[in-house]
């Protein structure tokens, strides 16, 4: 019985704290987490396809660059890359701006935390997406590419009509995994002061001394975010492979 009373108290405290304004804060945290993830995924998609192309290239130099990219950014702790972008971004921006004279020689051009954060997470996401794209490309039937060439299709046409639709279809499940990974990586941006879900939960836990409550809430909210993305990617998979399913 004592346990039940304890539980009741806990729920009541939780309600009071959330109603006092932390609830709204957490909702904003979710919004920022989703924003960070979506932007990072887009940066990662651009970088990932370029790197995948480099890794599939016939030129040794390009292949080496692609290999190094995926090795470095999958082999380094995410936290380290995020810190590097946070501190290094401002130095690079300032250096560029000073050398072009757009700011004075003593002025500093700051890289905003959000921008630095999404660049870091985007680059990491790009390394994983590159592997997904490369795998999908390799899974395309050689014969189709040869047939397209025999038809006299230009490289662009071949890419647009044969390669891209298939890579996208084959890449969807892999991209779903990368998406989940990126949501979880976005939690690490909290160290740079972007008020995403993890930072908000952290601040709430520290200032109210209810760490169990807020970390559990954060955990649940991340679970909700990763689990509602699963049916979305399932739908995307059905959509992209619609021409491969037999009509009933």
């Amino acid at each position: 019985m004592e346990f039940l009373n304890d539980l009741k108290d806990q729920v009541w405290t939780a309600y009071e704290l959330l109603a006092a304004g932390w609830g709204v804060q957490l909702l904003w945290g979710i919004a920022w987490t989703l924003a960070v993830t979506v932007v990072s995924m887009m940066i990662g998609a651009v970088l990932g396809s370029l790197v995948a192309a480099a890794k599939l290239s016939h030129r040794g130099g390009l292949r080496f660059i692609g290999e190094s990219y995926t090795t470095v950014f999958r082999g380094e702790p995410e936290l380290l890359i995020i810190y590097l972008f946070y501190y290094g971004g401002t130095q690079v921006l300032t250096g560029v701006a000073r050398s072009t004279g757009s700011i004075g020689s003593a002025d500093i051009l700051n890289m905003p935390s959000f921008l630095g954060g999404v660049l870091a997470v985007g680059i990491i996401s790009g390394a994983y997406q590159a592997e997904v794209f490369r795998g999908s490309f390799l899974a395309i039937h050689r014969g189709e590419l040869e047939a397209a060439r025999a038809y006299g299709m230009s490289p662009w046409l071949r890419f647009r009509l044969v390669i891209m639709p298939q890579v996208l279809r084959l890449a969807v499940p892999g991209l779903g995994n990368v998406w989940q990974l990126t949501i979880k990586d976005s939690a690490l941006i909290s160290v740079t002061g972007v008020a995403e879900l993890m930072l908000t939960a952290n601040k709430a836990a520290r200032s109210t001394h209810h760490s169990l409550l807020f970390y559990t809430l954060a955990g649940i909210l991340y679970l909700v975010m990763t689990s509602i993305s699963t049916p979305i990617f399932d739908r995307a998979e059905r959509y992209t492979s619609r021409s491969f399913t037999r009509p009933k």
Partner: peptide, 23 residues
């Protein structure tokens, strides 16, 4: 698998370290 794959390790670590010690 759903719980431990779906949430960041950082959250899990905080829960084990700061969360459980509250009981």
């Amino acid at each position: 698998v759903f719980v431990f794959r779906g949430s960041p390790l950082l959250v899990q670590l905080y829960l084990v370290y700061f969360g459980l010690s509250q009981f």
